[in-house]
Amino acid sequence: MPHTEKLISREEIFTGRVIHVTRDTVLLENGEESTREVVHHNGGACIAALNEKDELYFVRQYRHAYEREILELPAGKLEKGEDPFYAAKRELTEEAGITADDYISLGTFLPTCGYCTETIYLYAAKNLHQSSQNLDADEFVTVEKIPFAKVAEMIAAGEINDGKTIAAYYRLAMLREKGEF
């Protein structure tokens, strides 16, 4: 029998530009009540773009929540109701300044399923073309190309520790191993 919780009530705690937070009262499968604090988020899209030299495009940017620069694949949040595939294509152009002829879905990633509704849609792209960056006014990134084989070493060394990037990389690595990308 699947495990479930039944929502009894929901209290709005905070509504912001990117997230809103609720305090939910739920009925557990043992008949007891419990409280869940939930961060609601529209989700995001992340894209691993592989060039003809077998390099992945990364962006390095300052992330305020961690108070440091993070090296990650191009990604961005979804607008309400936005198609994740179009968001991934948009972010690839906006952040890395490239477009692609071929795309494949790498599935989804749930970054913080204990308290957040965010789902990140993962994609890979190849047969790339140079375009131009179109960064948001509050966005400052440096584009870096890293050889595909070196990325695993950087993940193992803790130089790349962004969850969506790690998930996309290893899913793409599995497809490449099977000759599917």
Score class of each variant (00 low, 15 high):
residue 1 M to H: 11
residue 1 M to L: 09
residue 5 E to Y: 10
residue 5 E to P: 02
residue 6 K to C: 01
residue 8 I to R: 12
residue 8 I to M: 11
residue 9 S to I: 03
residue 9 S to E: 11
residue 10 R to T: 14
residue 12 E to Q: 12
residue 18 V to N: 08
residue 19 I to V: 13
residue 24 D to P: 08
residue 24 D to V: 04
residue 27 L to S: 06
residue 27 L to T: 05
residue 28 L to W: 05
residue 32 E to P: 01
residue 32 E to F: 09
residue 34 S to D: 14
residue 35 T to W: 09
residue 39 V to R: 09
residue 40 H to F: 10
residue 43 G to W: 05
residue 43 G to A: 03
residue 44 G to L: 01
residue 46 C to D: 05
residue 47 I to E: 01
residue 51 N to S: 06
residue 52 E to C: 06
residue 53 K to W: 09
residue 53 K to S: 14
residue 57 Y to W: 09
residue 57 Y to V: 01
residue 63 R to K: 12
residue 65 A to S: 13
residue 66 Y to F: 13
residue 66 Y to N: 02
residue 67 E to H: 12
residue 68 R to S: 09
residue 70 I to H: 02
residue 71 L to F: 00
residue 73 L to I: 12
residue 74 P to R: 01
residue 76 G to W: 05
residue 77 K to G: 15
residue 79 E to R: 14
residue 80 K to L: 13
residue 81 G to D: 13
residue 84 P to Q: 01
residue 85 F to L: 15
residue 85 F to Q: 08
residue 86 Y to D: 14
residue 88 A to W: 06
residue 88 A to M: 07
residue 90 R to I: 07
residue 93 T to S: 09
residue 93 T to Y: 02
residue 93 T to F: 00
residue 96 A to D: 02
residue 98 I to Y: 04
residue 100 A to Y: 03
residue 100 A to M: 06
residue 100 A to K: 01
residue 102 D to I: 12
residue 102 D to L: 13
residue 102 D to A: 12
residue 108 T to L: 04
residue 109 F to A: 03
residue 110 L to G: 01
residue 111 P to R: 03
residue 112 T to S: 12
residue 113 C to G: 14
residue 116 C to W: 00
residue 119 T to M: 04
residue 119 T to K: 05
residue 120 I to T: 15
residue 121 Y to W: 15
residue 123 Y to A: 04
residue 123 Y to C: 07
residue 123 Y to H: 07
residue 124 A to H: 04
residue 132 S to C: 11
residue 135 L to W: 08
residue 136 D to T: 06
residue 136 D to R: 15
residue 137 A to Q: 14
residue 138 D to I: 05
residue 144 E to M: 10
residue 145 K to L: 14
residue 145 K to M: 11
residue 148 F to L: 15
residue 153 E to R: 10
residue 153 E to M: 06
residue 154 M to L: 15
residue 154 M to E: 14
residue 158 G to D: 03
residue 159 E to W: 06
residue 160 I to H: 08
residue 164 K to S: 13
residue 170 Y to P: 03
residue 171 R to M: 07
residue 171 R to H: 11
residue 172 L to I: 10
residue 172 L to T: 06
residue 173 A to M: 13
residue 175 L to Y: 11
residue 176 R to Q: 12
residue 176 R to W: 02
residue 178 K to V: 02
residue 178 K to D: 04
residue 180 E to Y: 09
residue 181 F to C: 10
